[in-house]
Design a binder for these strands. Structure first.
Lengths: 340, 340
DNA sequence: AAAAACTATGCAAACGATTGCATAACATAT
DNA sequence: ATATGTTATGCAATCGTTTGCATAGTTTTT
């Protein structure tokens, strides 16, 4: 990267014009200010000389970096790769680069990551890590930082977000289980300080009500994190309780795997003795044993929609806030079956 | 991001020194040039005022961006997330940000991605997309771009790379299968223009030889890509052939899933009628049906080692090239069993 | 005491691009 | 022909930081 650099001045000297003229020709917005004859000559020479703008100099002057910071909890959670893919495809097509950071659901890490993004003057943020009440969101609003929340959102009402409709998802799950004859349905809830945890629980409650079933507090366990271990632990508690149940709805696929673990350890047949449903349809959910019935959220679309909205915000700060809820689908596989 | 900026000059005015003094105090390498009294005063005032260097101005002057470009084939392949994680953890600790790009194994995409990274003046590259003969590697060498290859490498001999030892892996697999009594072992090979495809095939051949078994050309299928579909297609061809076999070794876990698909479609019991082995131990391989026996490559370590070497190269261009092969482990699960 | 060496700090040039403003050249109206 | 309006281009300031060099002040050596 220490190769001799061709600058605007080099091109200008070769064509016999001033560097500001070259700059204006190379910017499509100002090209029309120059005659076509000079413009063609400049474009030709710039290409021949291999001129490439210095991004730092541009950014220093324009205060724009054409980067976007994306915060995810943990890139090794397979649900986030499709989201990033959707984000990257959209932003890359508009000349932006994506800087991804993991926060591991640690608030301190989230703050230091935000700080780093500020130092880098990212043009905007996509935040997939927000809690329902989140200082980062407050900070971004106060500072006027363009941002969009993806997957999870804070409680703030006039901020943009792209989520999956967790209530529709919950209704679908309970309806499916009810049709299979299930009446005692347990719920393994994610942390309530995340909107995914909270809203999926509300969706469970609503689904039960709509199916004419009674939601039983003793058949609900609230987990501290969306993890396999917590899912397993919750299932262990449910099985140790006095209330029997014939189905478990887990707040995401990772926790559903924990449910699987516990059922298997206790010699309970998943899909036959007890039905299990997850949420997200993360990659390879169809390869599990048994293939997991789950709510498919269009993760790539979540990413690309979030990126689209962010681009609008960056280009026009007056873009009104927008909260988009994408409709999920229930994918029935072999982890659910008729009540025995 | 349009908040009023505090500059070096503002801090300098407040302390009553020159901005170059502030700059030298804030740089640990030059702090000792200033008296402790002035240094403490500057550090205090800078913190109080919330001074933050302008990264663009720094980069324009120093020609350093403190970013690293990472090229992966496809972020949704679960094997790459741990690699990125390892890379990010190491680089982030040294003040770098990671810009990730997907190339989808398309050479044109790889070239345009490299071009974008050049425009951004990333300080170095980690390339997880190289073919055995790859123009990008030639370009980087000619230009003196610091880079390290990860997972896959080109044939060039004096370039740095961090790989898994595919031969050791192959030997482990064949030895394991031989111990289970398998003699007719089929191999589903990845594309030979990738080092992973080629070297894992060589490992297969070497393992067979070392186990005193005859590698049979009719029991080898070469795939055009590392994909589930190709793995399935290859298995279909193997089953349609005249040679019987009792085990399949697939060049990666994704292709092993394709092997699973075909066996299941044909009513063949995986792990009982035919044993299956993969390579990579991608996340959730233990959740498959049956849990996959596979070669575990320490993906996070591949990432962090590659990042470490790259940092050395960036800091000292004379760092000698180094090719590291990490030792894999065989993880035996339920997809392999005794010959029937 | 004078000369030489060392240290601390300020000055200003440089990095490369963008863009407001000035002005020369050209076109149109009187 | 003269006055007015429009267009094309160059000049130079700006963005904010780093760093070579100059120089004033201090310390050490002769």
């Amino acid at each position: 990267m220490s190769k001799t650099r061709i600058t605007l001045k080099d091109v200008a000297n070769k064509v016999g014009v001033h560097s500001s003229t070259v700059s204006r020709v190379l910017n499509p917005d100002t090209r029309k200010m120059m005659t076509e004859e000079i413009a063609e000559k400049i474009l030709k020479v710039a290409a021949e000389m291999g001129y490439r703008p210095n991004a730092f100099a541009q950014s220093l002057k324009t205060n724009r970096s054409f980067t976007v910071g994306v915060m995810v909890p943990d890139l090794t959670n397979p649900a986030f790769a499709p989201i990033i893919k959707g984000i990257d495809n959209m932003l890359e097509a508009h000349g932006y680069s994506v800087i991804v950071a993991n926060t591991y659901n640690l608030p301190d890490k989230q703050q230091s990551t935000a700080e780093k993004f500020r130092e880098r003057h990212v043009d905007g943020l996509i935040i997939a890590t927000a809690q329902r009440k989140d200082k980062l969101i407050e900070d971004c609003r106060r500072e006027g930082t363009p941002f969009v929340q993806a997957v999870r959102a804070s409680n703030d009402t006039d901020v943009s977000s792209v989520l999956s409709d967790e209530h529709i998802g919950g209704n679908m799950v309970i309806s499916h289980l009810a049709q299979l004859g299930h009446k005692r349905i347990a719920y393994v809830a994610g942390p309530q300080f995340f909107s995914t945890g909270y809203e999926r629980y509300q969706g469970f409650l609503q689904g039960m009500k709509n199916a004419g079933l009674k939601a039983d507090k003793d058949l609900v366990v609230f987990c501290d994190e969306f993890s396999e271990e917590e899912g397993r632990h919750a299932t262990s508690k449910l099985l140790a309780g006095r209330k029997k149940f014939t189905a478990v709805y887990a707040g995401n696929d990772i926790m559903a795997l924990g449910v699987y673990d516990e059922l298997e350890a206790d010699g309970i047949k998943c899909g036959k003795d007890i039905s299990v449903v997850g949420f997200d349809d993360m990659p390879f959910a169809d390869k599990f044993n048994p293939p997991l019935t789950t709510v498919h959220t269009p993760l790539v679309n979540v990413g690309s929609e979030a990126a689209r909205i962010l681009l609008e915000k960056i280009n026009d700060a007056a873009t009104p806030a927008r909260s988009i809820k994408l409709k999920p689908d229930l994918i029935v596989r072999e982890s659910t079956g008729k009540v025995r």
